[in-house]
């Protein structure tokens, strides 16, 4: 009962804010709503019982990625554009393609059934064993990926005059 109420709240928040990101002309509003969507998604993870993932979601998405995107918003100011200029020219075509697929997928996703196994406990310990035992190699590769991203971005951002 209480779960269903929270779920309904989160769905409204997530879908509404997500639509706002796409539809708002004002980019600062879009950024705020994006952060709100991330928070709602963390709430969804909590409903699923994945509390560690929910915390990571807030830490990475709200605490770090939103800050980066805000920097992007701040460093690329745009003069006020007329509303007509903020969609691409092919918008109707894109909407025409996306809408049927979206409706089909959303309807289809209701056909998934829960497992019969009961609810599971905390997710931190199995997560850690999985990452460090079964996924040791991808874990190291992740660090190389981060290193590559760091070096690449520094090269891109660095001014030439230094």
């Amino acid at each position: 009962m209480i779960e269903a109420a929270f779920f309904a709240l989160l769905v409204i928040g997530m879908v509404g804010a997500g639509a706002g990101v796409v539809l708002l002309n004002r980019i600062t509003g879009a950024a705020l709503l994006m952060a709100f969507t991330f928070l709602c998604n963390a709430g969804m993870f909590l409903l699923l019982g994945a509390e560690t993932i929910a915390m990571f979601q807030v830490l990475i998405y709200v605490g770090a990625i939103t800050v980066l995107i805000l920097y992007g918003v701040m460093f690329t100011p745009q003069r006020d554009r007329p509303y007509a200029l903020f969609f691409q020219k092919q918008t109707p075509l894109a909407a025409l393609f996306v809408a049927p697929i979206a409706i089909a997928v959303a309807v289809f996703s209701f056909s998934f059934r829960d497992s019969t196994a009961g609810p599971k406990g905390a997710d931190l310990a199995p997560l850690a064993t999985s990452v460090f035992r079964d996924f040791a190699f991808p874990f190291e590769v992740a660090s190389v990926l981060l290193l590559a991203a760091m070096v690449g971005a520094i090269v891109l951002v660095k001014r030439e005059d230094e």
Partner: peptide, 15 residues
Amino acid sequence: VGLLYLTTLGSMTVL
């Protein structure tokens, strides 16, 4: 995950 929760909230202040 109490401690993780506290660091998470601390990171939101920046925003």
